[in-house]
Design a protein around this nucleic acid. Sequence first.
DNA 1: CCACCAATAGGGCGTATGCGTTACACTGCG
DNA 2: CGCAGTGTAACGCATACGCCCTATTGGTGG
Lengths: 211, 211
Amino acid sequence: MDAIQVLIIDDHPLIRLGVKRSLESSGGMQVVGECADLASTRKWLDLNGKAHVAILDRSLPDGDGLEIVEALKAAGIKVIVLTVEDDDVEIRAAIEAGVDGYLLKSSDTDQIIHAIGVVLQDAGAFPPQVLKKIYRGNQNDNPISRLSARELEIAEYVAQGYSNKVIGAKLNLSDNTVRNHLANIMQKLDFHNRVQVATLVLQHLRKARRI
Amino acid sequence: MDAIQVLIIDDHPLIRLGVKRSLESSGGMQVVGECADLASTRKWLDLNGKAHVAILDRSLPDGDGLEIVEALKAAGIKVIVLTVEDDDVEIRAAIEAGVDGYLLKSSDTDQIIHAIGVVLQDAGAFPPQVLKKIYRGNQNDNPISRLSARELEIAEYVAQGYSNKVIGAKLNLSDNTVRNHLANIMQKLDFHNRVQVATLVLQHLRKARRI
DNA sequence: CCACCAATAGGGCGTATGCGTTACACTGCG
DNA sequence: CGCAGTGTAACGCATACGCCCTATTGGTGG
């Protein structure tokens, strides 16, 4: 059997080296490419790069690693995300992007090799610790998702420390209206003042965009 | 000349492997120990482990890597921090803990080898990108540091969404007193409402403890 | 010892906020 | 079509908040 061809996409030279050596020393694997960012990955694909599996980091200097998943899949390359992000939001975003596996950087080298074997059999490689996160995440689903678009807009202004009157001016609304929206927001979230709304929004932002 | 002995402390097997291979392939370096957490590092030191340099990660499963710096220095081991944290707060904390070098995990393997050579000559290994952070950090020094201990305590309760009356009850204060403290806080920070205070505290917490 | 500041506490005043309620227009869905 | 959901707006009321002010106590530094 021919060697399994692996593409490594990670901006940390140390990680690239670690993955490369652990794969090559396991036998039967061959690293056919190393890319440090999205741009070089696209170039590698354009130059007719072929591989069976890509090991993909999320936090790349020029964007989110998930942006390149589609192109990789189109080239017939299985994608395993290897990242430090273990938030349920992040994991779900990766699954929705269509990745075949999700590993944490704290993984052992064996787990990575095992995951590659699994995804090549068209199965999903999601370790228990990762699945647990998703499951728990689905339980107490993000409370902020209950807000309507308009309410979310106002909640974001609240989080920036604006008064109802100022928010009203910004959105061309009566401050009465802003107050009503905020009242509805607080009712939906079971909060009793605007500071709680602000903290929730800030926490949510911290998760949504990685900071 | 004998080989330079290096101890690697990092909870990520991939990073350990990457560092190990890059050091060993450079020639003249020998990895004499690998530890994944604080506890095993202490054990390693107790068993009379000797090394010239330690490559230390900050985020370990059982605590902050900086906690072990003192013990390493006491054993005559130079310490180079290798981490993803590039906040000025984090960098300054490391320098105060007495580390000899500070590298980001995005560093190239050459930089690590170079840093080891530098610290063995009793010099500090702080790349320009790191030093720039500290410098800029010193400029607009953390505004929250202007608050007194009591004010900070109240600011933290504000960030948790409590009203003045509730904060007063929690601290055995009159709500008038809480109000006065908060007024002083807002004056010091040039803020005009409690939400701004809350957001600042939350941002600060995000930096101080890594989340 | 005096000056200064942090911490505590209170009063007063005007405004903002939170809470309940009502009302109406618009949109989409069964 | 009717109905639910959403966005908009207004009113009144009680409370919280922000912004003045004064005052005492205890510690720190000149």
